[in-house]
Design a protein around this nucleic acid. Structure first.
Lengths: 195, 195
DNA sequence: CATAATAAATGACCATGGTCAATTTAGTAG
DNA sequence: CTACTAAATTGACCATGGTCATTTATTATG
């Protein structure tokens, strides 16, 4: 017979998340150590792994939550009507996702869902991103290409977003900044002049 | 005064690379342990790290070398003239890069060059990929769009290649296989019907 | 050839993520 | 209230990547 989870569980989990968030706000994501987290939270190491499968899952929660906050802010704003506006709207999200190389690595690793059952925060956020992009791409008063459907259009925007972010860490071809590169990509993808 | 490297150096390095390649051919990349490699190569653990900054650098060498072999084979073939042919030509490379989740993670992490000085194998291979794609995109007898230059066209193909590969590990939206997805992307990118 | 100088190799040791049998705590039934 | 059961917690221990002072091999020089 299974029993309902105790409220102690959520408290401990919250203590761990809070401790981790505090430490990250000081030293960043890359420098976080599980040891520090449990010390600050006042629990044993084993407890950490009773709440999170591994360190990456904690990161998944924290990074995913931050991405959700940023995305909430983005959808609260006006719907962008052209390529440059979409680039501009996505910029805060892109900036966060590339705030540390380690953060982008985690995001890339957990943006896909290996198992149908449980969708983790980052993967869920990616799903939201695609949906929002689809909405933007399918509003009628845009001048976007009509030869492909909104789903494909959205996937393309996303592919270029990732490409632009990856190149932010590249010492080669770094003449362009993230914003300008993303604009260039999205113009070419969303409103081609055609052959 | 600096002295020329001894030939012993290259021998030891070769022993390590051979041992690693052997082990990988049996158990795959993910399962490789540094301990196993030095045991099989008959050297001490410290020696490994005198030759490779870390385990990832060994992977960078081995995976990069394999990618180079595949790319050599691709360029030895005929130049693809349309989107579907490009997708088809890239497929062997994409298959290898996604042979294990771990392999794709390593490739994504080391495909960008953080420091100008030393370009590692995977990053160099990515550079080659872009150049080859540029050549394909700028051959005159294709029906590709002419509104953007070959460099941007190549970067886009690459962005879509990465997107298609990432989705290979995704349990969601997995109706399409890698080949079909890549075709769809490249058709839309290289030959848009325009608004 | 002897000796000094530098390169290469060694392995005990460390850092950090992760495991699990044993223990404590909270909820439940009588 | 007591005994019982499942959930939650603990911390010693393990796995694996990585470090570095010390030792050994190689090469240059008088």
């Amino acid at each position: 017979m299974t029993r309902a989870p105790q409220k102690r569980t959520m408290q401990t989990r919250a203590k761990l998340l809070d401790a981790a968030a505090d430490l990250i706000s000081v030293n960043g994501y890359t420098a976080l150590r599980v040891e520090e987290v449990v010390l600050k939270a006042g629990v044993a190491k084993g407890t950490f792994f009773a709440h999170f499968a591994d360190k990456d899952q904690l990161m998944n929660q924290l990074i995913g939550a931050e991405m959700d906050r940023i995305l909430d802010h983005i959808v609260a704003g006006p719907v962008p009507k052209d390529a440059d506006s979409i680039a501009e709207a996505l910029l805060p999200l892109a900036e966060f996702m590339t705030c540390e190389r380690y953060v982008l690595d985690i995001i890339l690793r957990y943006s896909v869902v290996p198992e149908i059952e449980q969708i983790e925060p980052i993967a869920r956020n990616f799903g939201r991103q695609i949906e929002i992009l689809m909405n933007w791409c399918s509003t009628s008063d845009t001048s976007f290409r009509k030869d492909i459907d909104a789903g494909l259009l959205a996937e393309g925007v996303h592919a270029f977003l990732l490409q632009a972010m990856a190149l932010k860490f590249c010492a080669l071809h770094c003449e362009l900044g993230l914003r300008e590169r993303l604009r260039q990509y999205l113009r070419a993808w969303l409103a081609p002049v055609a052959a």
